[in-house]
Design a protein around this nucleic acid. Structure first.
Lengths: 173, 173
DNA sequence: CCTATATCAGCTCTACTGATATTT
DNA sequence: CAAATATCAGTACAGCTGATATAG
């Protein structure tokens, strides 16, 4: 795809001002910020998925695998996985299905809850998680171009957005 | 989905530090920022898609429709639509197909290029775009919780990320 | 009885690949 | 002939709904 000789988000902002002259500046600020997030996510996801392809992982599967690698005994109930990654129960089933088919995770009944299932990371799963993480760390998750200050600003600002959206209840406010 | 009593991104950062003690702090900053962008996008897209559902639009279709509404004569070649929205040619065909099926856009041959097709917004399309935009403006695109300063920071920081990712060539650098 | 957990079938959507007809 | 434009078939993926079996 040929890169544009101008910023399409900035241009959209100018069009917005022209067509909606009575809207407060805050509205255009919001539109530019949201459009920027959408584009940034698209660019980053494509970059990360490409980096993870040699490992047979997508970013979603990678997130689930790493979550298990950090858990006590390398195991979590599927419901916990869904909570932490904020994905639907059916999506958890799907992601774990694929990780299990690749031999990176195994299922077993939850001894503490007869309704539940524990996903456990396997030894090959740990190895894949570690090698994939080395790759992502080395390319700094696709944001090599940003200084630490900007990265921390992003986290802080988007954290507020996530709290307001109900992503989690802030423990330190 | 029950909201967590803690920030899952912050917790992932602490786990990262514990498992990768030799990684520079910058790596964890990058991981937190990227994960935040992914989650924020997910939350925002769900919010916007829900707001647009009564209009029979997704955010993708809304973006294409608004782009046409801003264009001279309300028309753009499909290749231009793809450039501006940074989506694949096949996705442009798909989006315009659906907008056309809904009567919001019409296709006609490009008089300036026999290979091309022009997408033109219809009068019903303009009305839907205007009503949908009023709704999104009113809810400030889902980021009501952020002050103008944060919205402008997001735009500025993500703009650099987009430039480095080849989203566009900066005209003012 | 009501709720929670997980799964399944089925649908929508976006993204991408590879092939193709047409035109420049 | 090579490149660009658009389309189509087919695949993969994530996200969701509704239904279901099992267990707390």
């Amino acid at each position: 795809m040929a890169p544009l000789p101008f910023d399409p988000v900035a241009r959209a902002g100018r069009n917005w001002e022209r067509h909606w002259p009575d809207e407060p500046a805050l509205t255009i600020d919001a539109m530019r910020a949201v459009t920027s997030i959408m584009r940034a996510q698209q660019v980053l996801l494509a970059d990360l998925d490409q980096a993870l392809r040699p490992f047979g992982l997508t970013f979603s599967r990678y997130e689930a695998l790493v979550l298990l690698s950090f858990a006590r005994d390398g195991a979590l109930s599927l419901s916990r996985v869904g909570e932490r990654l904020q994905v639907h129960a059916t999506s958890v089933t799907n992601v774990i299905d694929r990780l299990e088919a690749a031999g990176l995770v195994s299922r077993r009944p939850n001894p503490d809850d007869g309704r539940g299932v524990l996903a456990t990371i396997t030894e090959p799963g740990r190895q894949v998680a570690e090698r994939a993480t080395r790759v992502l760390n080395a390319r700094r998750f696709g944001v090599e171009s940003l200084p630490a200050e900007d990265l921390r600003s992003l986290f802080a600002i988007l954290r507020r957005l996530r709290v307001e959206a109900g992503d989690f209840a802030d423990e330190a406010l």
